[in-house]
Amino acid sequence: MLTANGQYATIRDDFFSTREGPLADIRLAGTICNACGEPSLGTVPACQNCQSPDLRPATLSREGKLFSYTVVRNRPPGDYKGPDNPFVPFPVGLVELPEGIRVLSVLDCALDEPHVGMAMVLDVYELYRNEEGAPVLSYRFRPATPSTNSEEKR
């Protein structure tokens, strides 16, 4: 299942708190600026807000609130690895985490389910298998409370 060094492959290693253990224990990772407190997703060479290079590693919260959203109705161009042939439309949104960052994410829910302010929770999942047959992890968010009455079910 894992790569040769015993770690998961990911879409971008610096986005994840660890590449080992149960997927449910993996969190989004980034940095927090020691000068102005601004968080980032993944590592950055300097704070994007105040340009300070004085940053500390941080693990981001799993729970957040949906700030806004849209739906991807057509297959994204290029090397898209989500459900394909046939392509399945999916919602996308900005999820606001308590650290003060909104993360653009695929939303794992029905197309008509997202609404501004809805409670979301992180889901680290296998997006696809690479050429060695190993899973490649990505992140998405799903509603914290599963829906019961959605009409357009994925």
Binding site: I11, S68, Y69, T70, V72, N74, P76, P77, G78, D79, Y80, K81, G82, F90, V92, G93, L94, L104, S105, V106, L127, Y128, V136, S138
Partner: peptide, 15 residues
């Protein structure tokens, strides 16, 4: 591109 976050109208649509 792999995750499908690569459609140009997405930021405008979310805004």
């Amino acid at each position: 591109i792999k995750t499908g976050l690569s459609q140009n109208p997405i930021p405008w649509a979310i805004r």
